[in-house]
Nucleic acid binder design. Structure first.
Length: 995
RNA sequence: GCCCGGGUGGCGGAACUGGUAGACGCGUUGGAUUCAAAAUCCAAUUCUUUCGGGAGUGCGGGUUCGAUUCCCGCCCCGGGUACCA
């Protein structure tokens, strides 16, 4: 029998499904392994070959761990709330749930074909009410918590209320936005609304007004990168800044822990760095500067260099700073207003890209240096951002390049506080050196001076040590339909959460998915979207006038809500009493290996860490990092093909009016003309025109009679590359007939072909895979043609997992041939099973054990491509040895299970084992004895150049090796009669002779 | 600008701590088998050469008996980030 992969793979897929081979077990005495891949958003386009890359690696690892005797949890699910389905719903009216269901079905079909060992009984979908019930529940937990800085953890908000009740808020050390201080008595005297408002300032998820990019035409808020030049990227509608009351997550409370936690994670440095930058910790001091003539007013600045405080020569406020209006003198009012206006006109993007142009405006006011009492000018400048720190800086031009540029531009004196440092050409920003001209800091090194300065500032009550983070609280509201509804209603403006027993609050039906006419989010269209406090159910607007009926929250949660905790649900997916049981989460703990794209570095991967820390604080789980080790798979790039369309134009008699529209007519009449790549490569337009002359003239003469205007001739304007579907191209050769049939307008297209062989050659380029580039390779066709085992191995063989690489099917034959060669080891020339029993050949044993060792090492290093090579080498060697020994082939079969599970099952059965049991076989034990060599072939180098090889016993001493080698005839030749200066012998490695 | 990652044959890539550069696969060329094809097998394949050799891991230098690997300077590509005080 030939290697019939179709039959084999179908057989085993069915077997695995029917026997639930990959059901997760928690057998006693076995260690646990939790392997996870980022779950996909089920888009309409289906999977392309890039998707399974990470899944295959993850599957290989999970299967490997299983063979190594682990209880393995390897689940899969769908991140099924999201924009594309909603967009589609807006266009077609089809409910996003239906679209999602269809897409999930398609994904599942595709995934099933690749032979993954997922335990599908544990599938989760974030859009399922049974799932988002618990997303809502976690939201409520956050709502009912505050962050206590003393114990450095989240605690119940009721504890906080107790404290308020007893002591007010003066003693409490919590993360909050509360601007007032109150006593216990005052607290008790506040009405419920006021108390709720205050608690809101402490909650870990809270309502606050935040500035957003509001697009009235789209009825939604846009992310910064969706706004281009002040208009929406999609559609070009105007965007305005608007204050909106929205839910936020107090992730900033966790800034330090999110930063410190990175230390112990086995993630790539790239991702850690991105998170570190995002959190953006800077340590320094806040300092208060008085304002001349404004008693009691202060400018608070944040600086990381308090040691340079004597180098301050001016102050800069952000143009939006609150104090600007108050302190600007009459003399400068006009200029300051003008500057503010100009700065306001600039988009953030403009301000970013315009780094070199320094601008600013003097306010006429002076600050008072808190240490030496000097008067210093106060300026405004748009290089100072209102949103970072205090929106004001003390400018130290000798130590900061931006301040230096500013001082130079406006002729402000620069004071040097660094000993023996020249600052005539630029600022000195290094954190080394000795401070001078700074009174009590003179002669101190920077580090010491910083400490001393802070000490002094604190002593004199003008400043304090402070740490700043760039990280902002995360907005948690979306003006969308297809997301988790908030379990929240508003009783006279006070947000209240719905009791746990009535969760989930299910997403209501709406008749359209757009915002309402008065700009409310889509949920404003729902008929039953009021909460009846008395009957604990949703009800309609008609009951809204009853005192116990209140409007529901109209926003929904963002995409990252469901994905922030999904890894926990897999442990206990059907639990109706808890998001996960204590028992399950204590068993499986965090994810041992997480595989996914690097693009989620500041989104999902940060939020999931935040929620995990929070859930730990509240005692639901006992670890605080979700993903212990992570690998980010690189993107698989597509190979796009291009055809080159000739853009034509006409030469008209003089005085012809409106040649453009006549060109258009010509274009339509003449139709599409494509030219092969070989004819335009490196050619000028006039050369191309000359090549096309014949066909153009013929064409023109044919249609001339149909024209109602005169044309002298037709010429080539340019050659326009157009993406062509890669399915119509073989290598670079276009299937012209198929291309013509692919689109109505190409039916009558004409082609200028290669002169040599009359083919049409396409151009190509490596790009991101996307539908619009017609370069998407789906796994399905490859599975059909070569089988899943081949696809799995080929995707791994392509190169290191983390690296981006172009997809090219050219090499897939090689992997497929390998599997066929493996098959032949078990069969004779007629295709009958042919195995031998008994002792194995030592050479075969060596081949096998070398491979065991290599696979083991590669798996421990998470290197998959070289493992495939190792299998190939092994099969090549066994083929050369004509080895059909059962014991050897058995070992090889088990080794291969993670990579090619279908053929491994089949061969396992052929070897006489119970069907379907190879996944739980034991990984072969490596035995070093088989690899012991008696001799080693020493490469002999002269002056570092390898000249010849010398086979010598491995146990020979250094001295003897030297003697033997030098005595050799070949050595004499390279010595040229001289005696060697030095001979280096590294036993078992190399001999190097220095002449 | 700053911070990461990378640059090795025609192509994907290998070489774990400095020790035979180019494993493995693709492609290409030649051959065997076959009526023929598919499949399979064998051989060659970094460049250059006067067939002795010479050069060679982005470029220039250095350390070393020996450098793809370590150090210094530069160039190019990919990703992240951005007046962060």
């Amino acid at each position: 029998m030939q290697y019939d992969f179709n039959a084999i793979e179908e057989k085993w897929r069915k077997h695995w499904q029917e026997n639930k081979t990959y059901k997760t077990e928690e057998k006693e005495g076995k260690p646990k392994y939790y392997g996870l891949t980022m779950f996909p958003y089920p888009s309409g386009a289906g999977l392309h070959v890039g998707h399974p890359l990470g899944y295959i690696a993850s599957d290989i690892y999970a299967r490997y761990k299983r063979l190594k005797g682990f209880n393995v949890l390897h689940p899969m699910g769908y991140d099924s709330f999201g924009l594309p389905a909603e967009q589609y719903a807006i266009q077609t009216g089809q409910h996003p749930a239906i679209t999602t269901e269809q897409n999930v079905t398609r994904y599942r079909e595709q995934l099933d074909k690749i032979g993954f060992s997922f335990d599908w009984d544990r599938e989760v979908r974030t859009s399922n009410p049974e799932y988002y019930k618990w997303t809502q529940w976690i939201f409520k937990q956050l709502f009912d918590s505050y962050y206590c800085k003393d114990s450095d953890q989240a605690r119940s908000i009721s504890e906080l209320e107790d404290v308020f009740e007893k002591e007010g808020n003066a003693t409490i050390n919590a993360v909050h936005d509360c601007e007032i201080e109150f006593s216990a008595e005052e607290w008790k005297s506040f009405d419920a609304k006021k108390q709720n408002d205050i608690l809101m300032d402490y909650r870990l998820t809270y309502l606050a007004d935040s500035w957003v990019n509001w697009c009235p035409a789209l009825g939604t808020v846009l992310a910064n990168d969706e706004v281009v030049n002040g208009v929406s990227e999609r559609g070009g509608h105007p965007v305005e800044q608007k204050l909106m009351r929205q839910w936020s997550m107090r992730i900033t409370a966790y800034a330090e822990r999110l930063l410190q936690g990175l230390e112990d994670l086995d993630w790539s440095d790239a991702i850690k760095d991105i998170q570190r930058n995002w959190i953006g910790k800077s340590v320094g001091a806040s300092v208060n500067f008085g304002i001349d003539g404004h008693e009691g007013e202060n400018i608070e600045v944040f600086t990381t260099r308090p040691d340079t405080i004597y180098g301050v020569s001016f102050m800069v406020l952000a143009p939006e700073h609150d104090l600007v209006e108050q302190i600007t003198t009459d003399e400068y009012k006009e200029e300051v207003e003008a500057y503010k206006k100009a700065a306001g006109m600039k988009s953030e993007r403009d301000r970013m890209s315009d780094v070199k142009n320094v601008s600013g405006q003097f306010t006429g006011a002076y600050a008072v240096h808190p240490l030496n009492g000097e008067k210093i000018q106060i300026w405004i400048g748009d290089y100072v951002l209102a949103s970072y720190g205090t929106g004001a800086v003390m400018a130290v031009p000798c130590g900061d390049q931006r301040d230096w540029d500013f001082a130079k531009k406006f002729d402000i004196p620069i004071k040097n506080v660094f000993e023996n440092v020249d600052i005539s050409e630029g600022a000195y920003a290094e954190k080394t050196g000795v401070i001078t001209n700074s009174e009590f800091l003179d002669g101190m090194k920077v580090k010491k001076a910083i400490k001393r300065a802070i000490h002094e500032l604190e002593e004199r009550g003008i400043g304090k040590k402070q740490t700043n983070y760039r990280l902002r609280d995360a907005v948690f509201s979306r003006q969308r339909y297809w997301g988790e509804p908030f379990p929240v209603y508003y009783d006279n403006g006070v947000a209240k959460t719905i009791d746990d027993q009535y969760l989930p609050v299910e997403l209501p039906e709406v008749d359209k998915y757009l915002p309402t006419e008065d700009g409310q989010p889509p949920l404003g269209n729902a008929t039953n979207w009021y909460w009846d406090e008395q009957n604990n159910c949703l009800t309609g607007k008609e009951n809204a006038d009853q005192s116990h009926v209140h409007p529901m929250e109209l926003n929904t949660m963002p995409g990252w809500a469901g994905s922030s905790w999904y890894f926990l649900r897999y442990m206990d997916p059907h639990n109706e009493k808890a998001f996960v049981s204590k028992e399950k989460v204590d068993y499986w703990k965090n994810v041992d290996l997480y595989i996914g794209g690097a693009e989620h570095a500041t989104g999902h991967l940060l939020y999931a860490r935040f929620w995990t820390m929070f859930l730990k604080d509240r005692g639901y789980i006992n670890f605080e990092e979700p993903f212990q080790k992570m690998i980010n798979q690189g993107m698989i790039l597509g190979r796009s093909s291009f055809v080159y369309r000739l853009e034509i134009g006409g030469k008209y008699p003089l005085n012809t009016k409106d040649p453009k529209s006549k060109d258009q007519v010509l274009k339509e009449k003449i139709g599409y003309l494509f030219i092969s790549k070989g004819l335009i490569e490196g050619k000028s337009l006039s050369e191309i025109d000359a090549l096309s002359r014949n066909i153009l003239d013929t064409k023109l003469s044919k249609i001339k009679s149909e024209l109602d205007f005169d044309v002298k001739r037709v010429y080539v304007k340019k050659d326009l590359p157009i993406h062509v579907d890669i399915n119509l191209v073989d290598g670079d050769t276009l299937d012209i007939e198929a291309f013509k049939n692919s689109r109505e307008e190409y039916k009558n297209a004409e082609f200028i072909l290669e002169e040599e062989d009359g083919t049409y050659i396409c151009g190509h380029e490596i790009e991101k895979m996307s539908k619009s580039k017609f370069n998407v390779q789906t796994p399905d066709e490859l599975v059909e043609k070569y089988g899943a085992d081949t696809l799995r191995m080929y995707e791994m063989f392509l190169g290191p997992l983390e690296q981006a690489k172009p997809w090219d099917t050219k090499g897939i034959n090689g992997v497929h041939n390998f599997l066929r060669k493996l098959w032949r080891l078990f069969h004779d020339n007629d295709g009958n099973v042919n195995l031998s029993e008994g002792e194995a050949d030592p050479k075969a044993l060596k081949a096998l054990h070398k491979t065991i060792k290599k696979i083991d090492e590669d798996m421990e290093r998470y290197v998959f491509n070289t493992a495939v090579s190792a299998f190939m080498i092994c099969v090549n060697e066994l083929t050369d040895l004509k080895c059909n020994n059962k014991a050897i082939l058995e070992g090889l079969t088990v080794l291969l299970v993670p990579y090619a599970p279908h053929i491994a099952e089949e061969l396992w059965e052929i070897l006489g084992h119970e069907a379907g049991t190879v996944s739980d076989a034991q990984f072969p034990q490596y035995n070093e004895e088989y690899l012991v060599e008696n001799t080693f072939e020493y490469p002999v180098s002269f002056n570092g150049k390898m000249r010849f090889k010398a086979e010598l016993p491995t146990n020979m001493s250094k001295e003897d090796v030297e003697k033997e080698v030098l005595a050799m005839e070949k050595a004499q030749k390279y010595l040229e009669g001289k005696s060697p200066k030095k001979v280096i012998v590294v036993p078992g490695r190399i001999v190097n002779v220095v002449v």
